[in-house]
Design a protein around this nucleic acid. Structure first.
Length: 199
DNA sequence: GGAGCGATGTCCT
DNA sequence: GGACATCGCTCCG
């Protein structure tokens, strides 16, 4: 297998729709004590800072969303529906909002640990582990208190993205999920035909 | 396998 | 007070 390299800040310095598509096929890696958890990114959504009514940043900077206004390559983790976390990575230069929501992984390493964190049997269907933004965070042990605002561009924070040379093939552009405004814009991107994309 | 729905905390108007 | 970038359960086919 080709040697993996950690994606650096310049990777995230671009508009969210472009970063989103380029993240497909990369590995999201979480180091949990000595265990390495990883999955291939198969589904993402782009949220613009400006002119995107569906984005958390649409109404301006607040305490919750300030990470998205900061420099690129930082984790924005928020709590939703009273019980789930969602993980984004900030894009665009410092001062300009924008981010990519990570929606689904095809698990590749640490599946038993992911199942345990998800409260499932260790031989559970891998599709139940990280297919969906809330599931993804639970499978990797990502919570707002521990991960919101951390830098994902160095290998030391315990959370980063790696490029192992995998080529995702055809990318599908679809409407975003779970939003009511700007619901028609095709800013959800998936690896076409991948079975680990959320429903 | 799909539609309907309740659970539940935080944020902003 | 209402909305919310979700999930898993039930019920039905």
């Amino acid at each position: 297998m080709a040697k993996s390299r950690v994606l650096t800040r310049d990777f995230y310095l671009e508009p969210p729709d472009r970063v989103a598509q380029r993240l497909l096929g990369k590995l999201l890696v979480r180091r949990l004590e000595s265990v390495r958890l990883a999955g291939r990114i198969v589904e993402v959504e782009a949220y613009f800072g400006f002119g995107d009514p569906a984005a958390h940043t649409f109404a301006g900077k607040t305490l919750r969303n300030e990470v998205l206004f900061g420099p690129p390559g930082f984790a924005y983790v928020y709590f939703i529906y009273g019980m789930h976390f969602c993980l984004n990575i900030s894009c665009e230069p410092d001062g300009q909002a924008g981010g990519v929501l990570l929606r689904a992984l095809e698990p590749t390493e640490g599946l038993r640990t992911m199942a345990r964190l998800r409260g499932l049997a260790s031989d559970a269907n891998p599709r139940l582990l990280a297919s969906g933004p809330g599931r993804l965070c639970q499978a990797l042990g990502i919570e707002r208190e521990t991960h919101n605002g951390i830098d994902v561009t160095n290998g030391r924070s315990g959370l980063h993205v790696e490029d192992d040379g995998f080529e995702p093939g055809e990318i599908a552009a679809l409407p975003r999920v779970g939003i009511s405004k700007a619901a028609d814009r095709p800013l959800r991107f998936t690896i076409a035909g991948n079975r680990f994309v959320s429903r």
